[in-house]
Amino acid sequence: MIIVPTALCQPGMRIGKAVMSEHGRVMLGHRVELTQFMIKKLVQMGLDFLYIEDRETEDIPIEDSIHEDTRALLRMALSKIYTKFSATSTLGGMTNAAEISRLLFEGISRVLDDMNKGRKDLVSITTLNMAPATTLEQHFCQNAINVCVYATKLGMLQGYSHKELIELGLGALLHDVGNIQIPSKLLLSSSKLSASEYIEIQRHTELGFNMLKQDIGIPLLSAICALQHHERIDGSGYPNHLKGAEIHEYARWIGMLDSYDAMTHPRAYRNSIAPHYALEILYANAGSLYDIKKVTQFRNKVAIFPVGQGVKLSTGEIGVVCRQNSFIPSRPVVRVLKNERGEKLKTHYEIDLSLALHVMIDNCSERAIYSRDK
């Protein structure tokens, strides 16, 4: 299986992994054969990439850290929260807090079950086959689930108890819930914010804490994650300029993971950056903004280049990540499909980046893999 830019797909190609809507519903099922109309429609929707069955990569499995039905359940819970607390919603009073709480706890329990089945595996998130976030609600859901998956897996590897994992998972899932009550024009602004506008956005931490503490039946420590996830260990964060151990450990995890997820996904005011550059930024700020032990754990246990990811190497060669190295996930095994001149190889070969230390991943490059051959 390979990740192909939707605009470069051809009629007759078969879907390697179901295409999901922003609400987690299946739009195109596994092995559906693409038509020109389907391709055009997906491009119009803004879905940039598809998982495609491919002879040269048919032996490469692409698996998410959580099941699709688990992701759908989390989205349902988050959507109900958005409906209840949105500043523009007229249905908030009709949304049952007890039902939301039940869905949240059931969702986190399923995340733990999914993670336990692959307890020794690296954590990897594969959401390229999902329609991109085009509204604040969609962005809220995607970011929440990503951070939740990262945090829960890392918490398990830290040896947290079941109770602690529930607290951490809920805190990660709901860390940005306060943004629901911030004016959308500020969150979607592509221009530099004024000092007063920035202060208004910072209010989302306290708003989120109060919403969770008062209206949703979740543990207090989970609500504290919403309050503290923008605190930084040198005291430069907000809202209370806490330092070091004054910030709860859960919030230190979530603050780092939220920063990484934000950097690797586009915002209204900037483009996304490649995963390895985002990791470099985390390390550059370890000891000042982030806990260096947590950054190191993230580097050692998160597959920032998931299997199926197209990459361009420092040698100019182009290929796809085919296997992970559990002891150094930032240097996976790459199956080379094109040479440094962009010519498709008759016979592919693999480079283990944990052994070929002189070779680096230059950037993510699905388009180069499936561009017209020279």
Rank of each mutant, 00 (worst) to 15 (best):
I125W: 03
T95Q: 10
I62H: 02
C9T: 13
I273A: 11
R75D: 03
F209H: 13
M94R: 12
R203C: 13
L186M: 04
H139Y: 07
K346S: 07
A7R: 06
C141V: 07
R323K: 13
S79A: 15
D373L: 12
V320R: 10
A268N: 09
E231Q: 11
S161M: 03
A151P: 01
A131T: 12
D69M: 05
L174V: 02
N96P: 06
Y290K: 02
L313K: 08
L353M: 13
Q44T: 15
I81D: 07
A172L: 01
S109F: 06
L50T: 15
T347Y: 09
K185C: 14
R14I: 11
R14N: 13
K41S: 06
V26K: 07
L257A: 05
A98E: 14
G107P: 03
D234P: 03
I15Y: 03
I66R: 00
V111D: 11
L157Q: 13
P5Y: 12
Y283I: 00
T90H: 08
L186D: 04
V26I: 15
E206Q: 06
D59F: 02
Y160Q: 05
L337A: 09
W253M: 15
S124T: 15
I100G: 04
I351A: 04
I273W: 08
R203V: 14
E167K: 01
R232L: 03
E56N: 12
Q44I: 15
P329N: 05
M45K: 08
V147R: 00
R267Y: 05
T90K: 07
L207P: 02
A133D: 14
L157K: 14
K153C: 00
I100F: 04
L42T: 11
H276L: 15
D64F: 00
S124M: 13
K84N: 05
K243P: 09
A245T: 07
G217I: 14
P332E: 08
P61E: 11
I166Q: 02
Y370P: 02
R31D: 15
D114G: 11
I182V: 13
Y238M: 06
I108V: 14
M27G: 09
H67M: 01
H230A: 13
R110N: 10
F305A: 07
R102Y: 10
V26T: 14
M1V: 10
T347K: 12
A144V: 09
M27V: 13
I52N: 09
L128Q: 02
I60K: 06
G159L: 06
T57M: 03
V307P: 00
L221N: 08
K294P: 01
I166C: 00
K344A: 14
L122I: 07
H175E: 01
Y290P: 04
R335A: 01
N285M: 02
V177C: 14
S371P: 03
Y283Q: 05
T152A: 15
R55K: 09
L207M: 06
K346D: 10
P332T: 10
L154C: 01
C141M: 12
L78K: 03
H162C: 00
S354T: 13
Q10Y: 04
Q10S: 07
R232G: 00
G155F: 06
G244T: 08
S222Y: 07
L357T: 12
K117R: 13
L136W: 14
K185Y: 14
T83K: 03
E200K: 05
Q202K: 07
Q214M: 00
I216F: 03
M263E: 07
K40P: 00
